[in-house]
Amino acid sequence: MLLILEQLMNGLQLGVMLFLMSAGLTLVFGIMQVINLAHGSFYMVGAYTAATVTQLTGSFLLGLLAALPAAAAVGMLVEAVVLRRLYSRDHLDQVLATFGLILFFNELTRMIWGRQPLFMDVPDWLSGTVELFPGAPYPSYRLAVIGMGILVAVFLYLLFTRTRLGMQIRAGASNREMIAALGVNIRFLYTLVFGLGAMLAGLAGVMAGPILAVEAGMGEEILILTFVVIVIGGIGSIRGALIAALLVGMVDTLGRVFLPGLFRLFLPVAEADGIGASLASMSVYILMAAILVWRPRGLFPAQI
């Protein structure tokens, strides 16, 4: 029972990270119709900046505060220098150019920080555990990640429902021609959305820092899960991204923990663990395939 609760929380925490990654990216896809593989690089920039500043100053909060603008700045720079020229091109060009950007960013981090991964410590004030209810301790840091995710979700909700800017962005994600018709300064809006998306990715990178190793190429692992989330949720839909992120987070986490056990019920241990592990690593992709058969454009497709 406790194991299940703990794993549910872990699934929630992975889901939150995926939401941070996919919220910005699904908007970029939806509004600009541009496929950006380099989104994982902003995640990496966030993680490296936070790790470095935290090491220098000893303060995780300063690291976080430095990482967010750094990721946003790199994102806006990339938009202005490369992606802006690709909006009118076909997806193939976008894939190749942003693939080039990934190679560049990964190698650049290797040049600056070396090939060894950096390790970030959980800040002291979050290193303890919290009893969710008696007898069920859970690491404070992971709880903080979940809390941060909820905060961002609320922030995005308010941004998109209560502010003029948010409504313009939302209108753009679901109907591209509409924002042009509204006479919005599209160039500025695009750069802003891109910066926001990069900042959220950077935030996810900071959060991941103390949990995973900070290393070159870390962005791509989560990028592909992010794609799965966006495909399931429907391109351009923040609500879809939220639900799909939680779904993927849960399925991935619970699958890894419980599938081997499930197979042990009717198979020898060695075989059960092998098949269980294989299936677990594929579970989110199988989920994606199943949803595609049912709804080829995702759970919440934007009308185009």
């Binding site: 190749l96 150019a97 080039g100 950007l101 190679l103 560049f104 190698e107 290797r110 040049m111």
Partner: peptide
Amino acid sequence: HWMVLLGPFLV
């Protein structure tokens, strides 16, 4: 670090 050159070349 040749990839740092190859990346921009692709772009």
